[in-house]
Computed example of a mutant assay.
Amino acid sequence: MEMINEDHNIHITSKKRLSLALFINYFVHGMVLVILMQNMLSLAHSWSTSIAVVSYVISGIGIGRLIAYPITGILSDRLNRKTFVLIGMILYIIFLSAMPFASNIVFAYILAILAGVGNSALDAGTYTTLVEINNGSGKSTVLIKAFMSAGDFILPLLVFFLDSRHLWFGISFMLPAIILILNLVNILSIKFPDIQQINDGMEMISSSISKVKKIFATIGLLVYGYTSMALMLIFTQWITLYGLKVLHLSAITSHFLLSLYSIGSITGVLVISFILKQKSCEELLVVILNLTALLALVVINLATTPLVVEAASLVFGFSAAGGVMQTGLTIFMKLFPKHRGAITGIFYFFGSIASLTVPLVTGFLSTKGIGLAFNFSILISLISSVFVILVMMIMKSNKE
């Protein structure tokens, strides 16, 4: 009996250590998401070019994701999760270590593409692992969003600190690189779960769903991969201008709306993670949160006082950016337990398409009016809600 308890404790300890190591990667990932934008002036000066060119280099990350997501997802199922976590970390380390020393745009763009590939490799190895060590539950994948939010909150403060003291901007790249190097050493000694063993236990859920229902559920979840990302992008890009130009709020109030969105996002992560820890109810939760996000957007559109807009922005952050996208991915993995890596890749591939197309569409709409650009989110949210309700009905009919 003592031997069994000892083995169980070792398993629990290893699981917690692995989870923490994966979360640390996404703390750095949160920094990587904003590091080029936060250092645009310094990079432009270093390359003797304009901010517009730096913005062009940033697009390389999106290109890298689009190229790599389908490939890394499929290969992570055939090889192993740990390999792709390590690949993602190594590519991020190369990106962070080399970018401050990049002397020309071509080299910088190649590094940005490598970062996009690293992002896809990290996702393919991490989301799948967290679901597998929690017996199919998505409670841990939601926490990824919390660590990302912490990273993209701290990085701008670090950049400001370095700039205010006239220190080298490259330190903001070196510090996250050092964190990753230390975590790489840590992860090398951690054992990842056996993929096949976990899949055997989950296959019954997938096999009980008819082929036709599975096709419709797949279409719904692919659409959701696009719409869930599109909603966050539209809100973060346009809410400040919408507050200023359409709602005629003060500058400080308009900027505060984005802060409230972030607070709502972090709160949502904690609440959703707690709920999923108590009960596996991903399908119902995603529907409720999508309908809540839709309601929040309608309230913002109809609001006549700043307080109402602020409250709705907080609610929208909670419901649309509190880990609901990650929860949708968990539902998708339930359908194809033997292909979790491939599913992660294709799900975020559609999210990457949103990151490329949404700025183009909303940019065009903004020429007709800022209100039109922002309220495009209501249409996206409506489409998102319809498709997640479809998915919930399919999954619910299967359980009955």
Rank of each mutant, 00 (worst) to 15 (best):
K338C: 10
I343K: 01
Y26A: 15
A320P: 15
Y224F: 13
S381A: 15
I272A: 10
I67H: 03
S366T: 11
E203C: 09
H248D: 09
R165I: 01
K277N: 12
G116F: 12
F235T: 06
G371Q: 04
H11K: 12
L244D: 00
V106F: 13
G264I: 00
V131I: 13
F95P: 01
F316I: 06
L302G: 04
Y26E: 15
F101D: 09
T141V: 14
I74D: 13
P306E: 14
I12P: 11
V246I: 15
F274C: 02
W47D: 10
A293F: 06
L291A: 08
K16I: 13
T344N: 08
T128R: 01
I181C: 00
T236D: 07
E203S: 10
T292M: 05
L130C: 00
L231K: 01
A124W: 04
V223S: 03
E6L: 12
V315W: 00
L390E: 09
M393Q: 15
S273G: 10
V185L: 15
N186Q: 11
I343E: 03
A312Y: 09
S208E: 14
L307T: 12
L297T: 06
G138F: 02
I24C: 03
S381L: 04
I353C: 04
I178K: 10
V32S: 00
A124H: 13
G138A: 00
D77A: 03
H11S: 06
F147V: 15
G201Q: 05
W47T: 04
F192Q: 08
R78W: 09
A150R: 05
V286H: 10
S366F: 05
I12Y: 07
S19D: 14
S137G: 05
L314D: 03
D163G: 13
S19E: 11
A321P: 01
L18G: 08
Q278P: 02
N301V: 11
L297H: 09
N135V: 05
M174R: 06
I90G: 05
I74H: 15
G371M: 09
D163W: 08
